[in-house]
Design a protein around this nucleic acid. Structure first.
Length: 916
RNA sequence: GGGCGAUUAGCUCAGUUGGUUAGAGCGUUCCCCUCACACGGGAGAGGUCCAAGGUUCAAGUCCUUGAUCGCCCACCA
């Protein structure tokens, strides 16, 4: 029997097929009846708009590695997927589509607009799901959730109503970040600050009935239309006499007072600041302190409002220009200076944000943050890497109230009704939802105003910040507020893996809301996840952030089509050192595609040679039945290669498990890569080749069994990193005809019994021996096909024996025709290449006269290197402080090294004297 | 303004408690289409670990300062 497989690994069809099977068989739904330790994790839900990008790919790869690893370790494992309705982001996309049709959402009306968004959601969401399935993520699709699904809608209502009852959610007229394009309030997090080359305008404000004036400096002259005071520092000698006087506000001719306030910075500008309570957060606070009028001079779309008199209707920057010109014309513009500053822009649409006074809903954060801080400090929630923990804590410590209302139509509508008569607010009596037109909305609509009994009730038009519902994700997805089986089983989740870009948006909010809303006496019971691993972001090959405008984005699906998912996954994993961003290049991915091919071909080699096993009388069962495999390693007359590879397996397994435990994906991937390619393919398989069809049946049987055992072991080790390839090969293994999936097999556990330092040491020596031969022939530029004879000498019996016993593989690996082993050192004839190490001396007969001069030059170079090395070490050893303070093992180690180098040195000297 | 990170081979990056000759992938040079794999095999070259001080028997690793680059936070008119 032999199994035919193609010469090169072509991932596309294989991956598509495997992904489909995994999905259709619901392979990753945790068995309902199983008990045992639980591992649960939620997918950071991608925005329903857009598509899977490389950042998702990194995140999904890391989660999937951990999840597959845990599942194989025997945990009852749930990875819960889903999508986020992504309030603004989605609404913006659909509004853009409408704009292309020449429509505005107001023309459609709320209901029709929502219908359009749902339509788009179905399309886009379906695409994302298909993409994720194609990526092979091992999540439980039967539990997929969407933030606007009825049960989750209800969870949002429940959370809102509860926080509202508790007084943690309040409504009020405050200064908020307002996006004039999105026409909605934004939270602080949804704005980003950009440095900007601004200007500082110095404007004269005349004192009433006097020739005096005060010069104020401002970066936003257009807001002067709304000025209601000018403030100076109370102790500022320059202005002391003016405090309390009245100024005439230029252009609008309004009378405004000069007030004194501690918050004024005497050093800045002229030390006098115009106060615009309706258009600046500081001024708003000052206005509150001094009971100043708030004059809103701007419309929601950032044009000057009627309150701006002659400037009404002008766009804000056009107004600025005109105002500056008018001031100049009236001689009131003292001067203009450059002023570097930072401006806030809308994270979503990049429009400059306008601080705006408006009525919004807020969530008090201090009381919610306190338990979260405690949880992190007490390590109830552990955060990796360490520096993210500090950032997390700092943010919580300085937290401010969260503006949670958005003037959008797409989202969870606030379950509060306003009375048209008395203005009082009546909340829904409970969180139940009903389905209307297929979608959830609050069911328990109040019939009358809770205060005056009027029936004139209208629901608050606003929806909640999309992150409010995201903040409930780890429990809303499990059925909260009901006490469901899932919630009891899988909450708290074990781990969260998320990017640092949403640490505050999402991770921190989930932590706070979970701790507050969930039942349980202890933080441990309420915390939404026990561990938080914060991953980095993917950058382009030059380390530059990917963005559509720069055009350096990498489409993971394109890469996957070209090189396969496993190659991309492996590249991402091996580059994902905690705390540093990833510069991803296609070359790198191609490299791991080659690795996949290498694995494929190792399998091909096994399959190809099965006849040889049969020739030795082995059946498939004998070869690789699980119970037979379990007894590996089998040893034969020459046990060294087997002892060695299993010893390597023991340490590799320990390293992989340890690395994954600490989210050191790069280390785990690196270790399996080098084990498979270096140890397994380059040495073990090569070594075993002659034994696979040798005359010695015992040896052949042992080699075959071990080869299969190691190979299938390696597949399991590799599976979390390369799920498709390993699954495919697993099924092609002859003994696995009926196997369900490698992902349900057990993950290797390091077997300390296999650890065999002696074997590793001997192998290292053999590798050195072989390397020496290869090096010599390469340097002598000998024809690669030319067979050589060599002689080996060593004072050490163990070395001679080792070489003798492993004659076969040595011949094979080095293309020697003959190897003679002797005790005595060689003479010094010039017809051979001689290589000397501390352990042995090797003479390779080339059959031609060696280039003696080249040999001498090489030896001299080596001699000099050794001399230098020995001297440095000796002087170190001569240092009495070193001898007295350094640990004894270090000193002894150094002594041994020096002794060895000296022997080597002596040999070279001898050889040189012979040659010269 | 506050905080954080980075600087190691031509390029992109590893290097967890300080310890003997600092690693990987790609690229590059030389040899080989050897019966699993040219997406391969073999052998090389290539680094005063940003700079200057310091701690230590011992520093890529710890401390201080500086330079360059990057990121995050922030209500500096």
């Amino acid at each position: 029997m032999s199994i035919e497989i193609p010469k090169a690994y072509e991932p596309q069809e294989i991956e598509r097929h495997r992904a489909q099977v995994w999905f259709e068989t619901q392979l990753y739904r945790p068995p309902d009846d199983s008990r045992g330790e639980v591992f649960s994790i939620v997918l950071p839900p991608p925005n329903v708009t857009g598509s899977i990008h490389i950042g998702h790919m990194l995140e999904h790869t890391q989660i999937d590695i951990i999840v597959r690893w845990k599942r194989m370790q025997g945990f009852k494992t749930l990875w819960l997927p889903g999508m986020d309705h992504a309030g603004i982001a989605t609404q913006v996309v659909v509004e853009r589509q409408l704009a292309a049709e020449g429509l505005k959402r107001e023309q459609l009306g709320r209901e029709e607009f929502e219908r359009r968004v749902w339509q788009w959601k179905a399309e886009s969401g379906g695409k994302i799901k298909d993409q994720m399935i194609r990526l092979g993520v091992s999540c439980d699709w039967t539990r997929a959730r969407f933030t606007l699904d009825p049960p989750l809608y209800r969870a949002v209502m429940e959370a809102f109503l509860r926080l509202h009852r508790e007084g943690l959610i309040y409504r009020g007229r405050y200064m908020v970040n307002w996006c004039p394009r999105c026409q909605t309030a934004l939270s602080d997090l949804e704005t980003v600050h950009e440095s900007h080359e601004g200007k500082l305008w110095f404007i004269r404000y005349p004192v009433k009935a006097s020739n005096e004036f005060i010069i104020v400096a401002t970066t936003r002259p257009e807001t002067m239309l709304g000025d209601t005071a000018v403030a100076v520092h109370p102790d500022d000698e320059r202005y002391k006499t003016l405090i309390g006087k009245t100024l005439i506000l230029p252009l609008v001719n309004r009378e405004i007072p000069v007030i004194a306030d501690d918050s004024v910075d005497r050093e800045f500008g002229t030390g006098a600041v115009k106060v615009t309570p309706a258009h600046d957060p500081n001024d708003f606070a000052m206005g509150q302190r001094h009971k100043l009028a708030e004059i809103d001079v701007m419309t929601p779309d950032a044009h000057i409002s009627a309150a701006g008199g002659p400037y009404a209707g002008l766009e804000r920057f056009a107004a600025r220009e005109k105002i500056v010109q008018d001031l100049k014309a009236q001689g009131l513009l003292e001067k203009t200076t450059n002023h570097p500053m930072s401006i806030a822009i809308c994270d979503r649409c990049k429009t400059i944000v306008e601080p705006r006074l408006s009525v919004q809903w807020f969530c008090k954060m201090k009381p919610l943050a306190a338990p979260a801080i405690e949880a992190v400090e007490r390590d109830v929630l552990s955060i990796v890497p360490e520096n993210q923990r500090k950032i997390f804590l700092d943010w919580l410590a300085n937290i401010r109230d969260w503006c949670i209302s958005r003037q959008l139509w797409w989202g969870h509508r606030i379950p509060i009704w306003h009375c048209g008569k008395c203005g009082a607010m009546t909340p829904a009596s409970d969180s139940k939802v009903e389905i209307v037109n297929g979608h959830a909305q609050i069911a328990s609509v109040p019939h009358a105003c809770g205060k005056c009994g009027s029936k004139e009730l209208t629901q608050d038009p606003d929806v909640l910040d999309t992150w409010f519902s995201s903040g409930l994700w780890p429990f809303s997805t499990l059925g909260w507020p009901d006490d469901t089986e899932d919630l009891r089983t899988f909450y708290p989740t074990s781990l969260l893996i998320s990017g640092y870009d949403i640490l505050f948006f999402w991770d921190a909010r989930m932590t706070m809301l979970g701790l507050h809303l969930m039942r349980g006496d202890t933080l441990e019971e309420r915390i939404p996840f026990h561990q938080l691993y914060v991953h980095a972001i993917v950058r382009d090959p030059h380390g530059i952030k990917m963005s559509k405008t720069r055009g350096n984005v990498v489409d993971p699906l394109e890469i996957i089509e070209k090189h396969g998912t496993d190659a991309l996954r492996f590249a991402l994993a091996v580059m994902a050192a905690p705390g540093t961003d990833i510069a991803l290049s296609e070359e790198r991915i191609i490299g791991y595609r080659a690795f996949a091919n290498k694995i494929w071909n190792a399998a091909r080699f096994l399959f190809f040679n099965l006849e040889k096993a049969e020739a030795a009388g082995l059946t498939i069962d004998e070869l690789a039945a699980p119970e037979i495999r379990a007894k590996a390693p089998y040893t034969a007359a020459d046990a060294l290669p087997h002892r060695w590879i299993f010893s390597r397996l023991a340490s590799v397994t320990a390293q992989v498990n340890d690395a994954l435990e600490n989210f050191r994906f790069h280390e785990a991937a690196h270790v399996v890569y080098h084990f498979f390619w270096g140890d397994f393919c380059d040495w073990y398989i090569e070594w075993l080749k002659p034994q696979l069809s040798s005359q010695n049946r015992e040896e052949t049987v042992a080699s075959w069994r071990n080869l299969f055992a190691v190979f299938e072991y390696a597949l399991r080790l590799l599976h979390p990193f390369m799920p498709f390839l390993t699954e495919e090969l697993w099924h092609r293994l002859p003994q696995n005809a009926d196997a369900k999936s490698i992902s349900l097999e057990s993950f290797p556990i390091a077997n300390p019994v296999w650890s065999d330092p002696a074997a590793e040491e001997q192998m290292a020596l053999l590798q050195e021996l072989i390397g020496t031969v290869r090096n010599a022939r390469a340097e002598a530029k000998l024809d690669a096909k030319k067979k050589l004879a060599a002689e080996l000498s060593s004072e050490k019996t163990s070395v001679r024996e080792l070489a003798e016993r492993n004659l076969e593989p040595l011949l094979r690996l080095s293309y020697l025709t003959e190897l003679k082993i002797q005790e005595q050192p060689f003479g010094t004839a010039g017809d051979a290449l001689v290589r000397t190490t501390a352990q042995f001396e090797l003479r390779i007969r080339t059959g031609e006269v060696a280039d003696v001069q080249a040999e001498i030059a090489k030896l001299k170079k080596e001699k000099a290197r050794l001399k230098q090395d020995i001297e440095t070490k000796q002087s170190r050893l001569a240092d009495t402080t070193f001898r007295s303070r350094a640990p004894e093992e270090i000193v002894r180690g150094l002594e041994a090294t020096v002794a060895e180098r000296q022997r080597e040195y002596q040999k070279i000297v001898d050889r040189l004297t012979g040659l010269v």
